[in-house]
Design a protein around this nucleic acid. Structure first.
Lengths: 191, 191, 191, 191
DNA sequence: AATGAATGAGAGTTCATTCAT
DNA sequence: TATGAATGAACTCTCATTCAT
């Protein structure tokens, strides 16, 4: 009775990231993953129940990775505006640091039928610290609007879009451009 | 000789929109399209060369539909800020008016491997009026930044995201919320 | 009420010859024939009942073409050996003069399932003059063997094979080589 | 892990032979093969990359089968004429012993577009011993002609044609007839 | 645990043929 | 007569998954 080979599992996950980047999640098949990871197709079923389960589990791992360390960044000892800025910046930096993972995350979000609905739901909970931060600001009247959807959409979508744009070109976002956008976004929403 | 049954062709395209919405572009197959449209699989190949060609052609039709009438809306006789606001509003209204089409457009953009690269390229040209409007503002110093990518990302991504959010829930964006967001976005960028 | 367009029919038949040569009878489809002939697929069904009927009719036409003039060549006023030699030479020359047609003929003979069995049967009758010539020689004791199958196989197969060999290389049989082979064959069988 | 079921692979190959005989190589489809062999269509793709690869591999196996043992038959200790006769007889006997395989071989040769060109090329090398035998005879002045193509065509085509003729009628070549033809052919070419 | 073999279901596509004009 | 539209059947091939070792 052997233990699960963790290294092999990681090869599989890496293969998923790479194929999703190279060919799109549409062309992501078990056969291709196995070949790229250098394992047998059947081996993948040792680690995951099925394809949907696999994508869901990987998605959650990525989500955890991108959220990790967020709380520290929005530490309440800082001025409110700074905390918001730090929160957004955290995700920007994470996406830039883990481009393949971020790309996979976007692909799943754009094709939610690939994973179980509950996976997406549970993943939303990971953003709870950001929600708390928002609510705190609402109570204190820091926001230009009290509509959470508006704030979230404005704070994150443009950043994500910008990072994706450069990533697809095989480049990284210029530091200056990212800073400029962050400033504009935060200033437009927080007093 | 028989004339092309335009109604039948439209049924096919409608089926593409519906399946993409219901099951995702990942699960969009010729077989499903034919079944939903009530035609033979082979008939689809009368209208389109192959699946890639089909998605590309439909994508361009949708693009044309959403861009249609844009120029009139950003008529140069209006104040600059109003023109920008009208331009963004145009797309927002179009996406809301044609939710299935907008959803399909997003799906293709998120899975570009589904269509020929040149299709995406040629579709970008349709947005030229918006680019011209931006450049005009740059010359006249109306923008808070001269970085086109920043402006485009901020103006369109949050709107698109908001509309998609409600659409996925089977709802339409509340008028008030949309107006509020438009105001915030335009105000944050244009003097 | 128009008459059948004989020119169009010939274009179809020519297309059949060309495709059979370029891609093999295996890849001969109604669609390709129509495209190459510059007519509609449906038009082919004006001239022929179906694909099998078409191949059969064309086959018979080719057969007639290759046999045409045979009788004159084996005219009974000549010495017997000369008559045999002329008969074989006739086919050799015909195959060389009509290479595409000969190639089509071989293709059908090698794939008899493509035509109705009766077509093949009726086509055999066209070779009657040769049979008569053989039988005449049997009676007079001119042949080294009285086995008809042996004679026919030896007289025609090597010639056909040689011509095909050069044809496939895009060349014509060297005159001298053909003459040499004819001499050997006829000498080996006729006193 | 499971071992390849060699019996199953043989069933597939046998099905190919049978269908090619019953319906012609034109009507040989993966679906029919699978059904006749009693395996799944997908299983065939475990053994072969694709249809072309399959036909090519089977063709080479057959070629090897028919050539096997040739060298021993044309052993140099025998008189030259006997060696030639043995060589031709070898193929005749092989074709008679393996009629379905021989039929498949002919079908592929008549429809070379069904396999990769290199397959045909590499298969020609198997006939090298015969070429060597011919060349030896040329040097020693044993042949009536020094033209290789003529010799090969005369020695093999009539035999092949005769065997095919009887095979198509579901019969075997009468021993006496075959012997008679062999004698005529060899005598006509070798001193 | 790991994997090559095996497969039913379904993918996209082409086929010969008929329909409607 | 002539033909573009339309289609059911069949095509080759790939899929995610399970089997057997």
């Amino acid at each position: 009775m052997r233990k699960i080979d963790e290294a092999k599992r990681k090869l599989v996950i890496q293969a998923v990231f790479e194929i999703t980047y190279d060919e799109g999640i549409t062309n992501l098949s078990i056969g291709k993953i196995a070949k790229r990871a250098g394992v047998s197709k059947a081996t993948i079923y040792v680690y995951f129940e099925n394809k949907t389960d696999m994508l869901g589990k990987i998605y959650l791992e990525v989500k955890r990775l991108t959220d990790e360390g967020l709380s520290a960044k929005i530490d309440s000892s800082l001025p409110y505006k700074k905390r918001v800025r730090n929160g957004v910046e955290h995700f920007a930096n994470r996406f830039i640091s883990y481009p393949l993972q971020a790309n996979f995350m976007r692909a799943v979000q754009a094709n939610p039928s690939e994973v179980e609905p509950e996976i997406l739901k549970s993943s939303e909970k990971l953003a709870q610290p950001i929600m708390d931060l928002f609510n705190e600001g609402v109570e204190k009247g820091y926001w230009i609007t009290n509509d959470q959807r508006i704030v979230i959409s404005i704070l994150f979508s443009p950043i994500a879009q910008l990072i994706e744009y450069y990533f697809k070109k095989g480049q990284s976002v210029p530091e200056k451009q990212l800073t400029e956008m962050l400033d504009i976004l935060v200033n437009s929403l927080v007093e």
